[in-house]
């Protein structure tokens, strides 16, 4: 009999899309708050995308459930000890907030206190979801998912993915559903000051790379269960892990953004480079989550 992981690709897609969604949301709110003038269009795009991505992830999650029609029972049969239970709550909460926030954006009602409250609440739920992803895995006690680092790793990967997705949108100049006044505002501002994606890229890829390598190093130094788990992961996914997760998803973006910063620390990287690096980041982020989720479910010998 072949072994099948209880959770298949759909859970990886849920955590990936959900992560991308909250990453996009967090960055877009930060852009809106920090540098509204210059990034309003991209911030707007982010507010639309976030509920779509998280919602898409939830759809994959639902399709993975044996009884999707009972999904809402996680609310009334709520188990406070269960991270999965909290996850349901966070995702439902976030979806509501994010949809209202997007609607407000679409309507251009971006200056009232409701908008600010939505931003705050949305930011809170987005972070909770980002944390929940890693916490879910950590709470299940499987060796590969043990230890707290997995939480930071998933959150970091989500944020990085969100940034990358926004960079792509920005560079491709995609704008849908942008209210007229925003369109004009954007046209008026085009200085090089303020928010710099390239620096963010550099910083976060450096942090994430250190985290990933540190995590792996820690696993190799842990107990037999964990060592067996990481060895099994590298046996099954070693090539993808090194090639896509480490090199393509982190090292190249790190070096690329560094190259751009050295060339001109005040301006963003070139359009082509930005798109390529961002695409790599997204691919790397997915591959990372996929491998960790699938490999983490491997069966381990029972021992006394």
């Amino acid at each position: 009999m072949e072994w099948h992981a209880p959770w298949d690709i759909r859970i990886a897609l849920d955590l990936f899309l959900g992560g991308l969604g909250v990453g996009v949301f967090i960055i877009s709110v930060l852009l809106n708050v920090s540098d509204k003038e210059r990034n309003s269009k991209i911030s707007l795009m982010g507010s639309y995308l976030a509920p779509l991505l998280v919602g898409g992830g939830v759809l994959f999650l639902l399709s993975e459930l044996g009884r999707p029609e009972r999904f809402l029972s996680t609310l009334y049969n709520f188990n406070p000890q269960s991270v999965t239970s909290w996850g349901g709550l966070f995702q439902i909460g976030f979806m509501i907030i994010a949809l209202v926030y997007a609607w407000q954006n679409f309507k251009g009602k971006t200056n009232d206190s409701t908008f600010r409250t939505l931003q705050g609440l949305g930011l809170l739920f987005a972070i909770l979801i980002g944390v929940y992803h890693g916490l879910l895995l950590a709470s299940l006690g499987r060796p590969l998912w043990g230890g707290g680092m997995i939480i930071a790793l998933f959150l970091g990967s989500s944020l990085f993915g969100g940034i990358a997705l926004l960079v792509i949108l920005k560079e491709l100049g995609i704008s849908i559903g942008v209210p007229a006044q925003v369109r004009s505002e954007t046209a008026a501002t085009s200085s090089n000051k303020g928010f710099n994606f390239t620096v963010l890229f550099f910083i976060i890829s450096a942090v994430e790379l250190v985290l990933v390598l540190g995590w792996q190093f820690a696993l190799y130094r842990s107990g037999t269960d964990t060592l067996a788990a990481v060895n099994s992961m590298m046996e099954s996914f070693g090539g993808l892990w090194v090639g896509l997760v480490i090199i393509a998803g982190l090292l190249i973006p790190l070096l690329g953004s560094l190259f751009a910063i050295i060339k001109d620390k005040n301006s963003e990287m070139s359009k082509g480079l930005a798109i390529i690096l961002s695409a790599l980041v997204i691919v790397g982020s997915y591959t990372f989550k996929h491998i960790v989720i699938i490999a983490g479910q491997g069966t381990l010998p029972l021992i006394f």
Binding site: G66, R70, G141
Partner: peptide, 22 residues
Amino acid sequence: DKCIGCKSCMQACPYDVISFNA
């Protein structure tokens, strides 16, 4: 009647004694 088939329990069980009716 309460089970939603999320398989979290299967992931959490260290003994692999829970099975899913796929």
